[in-house]
Design a protein around this nucleic acid. Structure first.
Lengths: 112, 112
DNA sequence: ATTTTGCACAACCAAATGGTTGTATTTATA
DNA sequence: TATAAATACAACCATTTGGTTGTGCAAAAT
């Protein structure tokens, strides 16, 4: 299996989505993210590593503490992909409409 | 580990995203999806099972063949989540602006 | 100076993932 | 009717995932 490190992978896990949501309100250090999360610091640290590798957060050392900041612009890739799929989907209907319009007058059997 | 079956999981895998893209152009049977995919029919079938369980595609038996159709409306959940995160993010800046505006006149040391 | 806090690193674990092959079954087709 | 096509189902496999505990170390706080 190939270790995948992209935005889609970043948001695939509910714990990571929770982390992103928390960080959307402002930068936090690990301890603050751990609070009420229900999992250990080490568990959170692993998720932060993944999120960092996916480019969704940035980590900056500040003395003893490590501050995590969200990089939400990276989520564009996800929205772009969804929109591209939707565009194809809509084209499909346009083609169908065109086809129906063209065959409408030629065939009196074009029942719904 | 818990077997997660949601839209985020559905689009996490590149092969599944490829399948969704193909299906965005119109319904296909398994054989057509397998074409040029580079993986076996059984591999594709497994992905289709996941996509179906996540509600991103629907499967309908048609004689010997099975037709797969995309249910792109399910992707709304992803876009909604991204937008919610962005909303929080923007609120953060609004609060900062407000804070700066309030402290501007009280403190002559509000350097950039 | 000692203790606490925050974190990094490593090992471990069960379950999930993303494939494969192999076999059987049903449905069209020659 | 025999054969080919499309699928279903199961077993297998290596790797990844999402956690855990345990140890050690540097930076703050007392």
């Amino acid at each position: 299996m190939i270790e995948r490190r992209d935005v889609f992978q970043a948001i695939a896990d509910p714990t990571r989505r929770m982390i992103i949501q928390k960080l959307s309100r402002g930068p936090l250090n690990i301890g603050q993210i751990v609070e009420d999360s229900g999992i250990t610091r080490q568990g959170i640290a692993k998720h932060l590593k993944v999120l960092n590798e996916c480019g969704v957060i940035s980590l900056t050392q500040k003395g003893r503490e490590q501050f995590c900041e969200a990089r939400l612009d990276q989520l564009d890739e996800v929205v772009d992909w969804v929109n591209a799929s939707r565009r194809l989907w809509n084209q499909r209907f346009e083609k169908l409409d065109k086809f129906l319009a063209e065959t409408k007058n030629n065939n009196n059997e074009t029942s719904r």
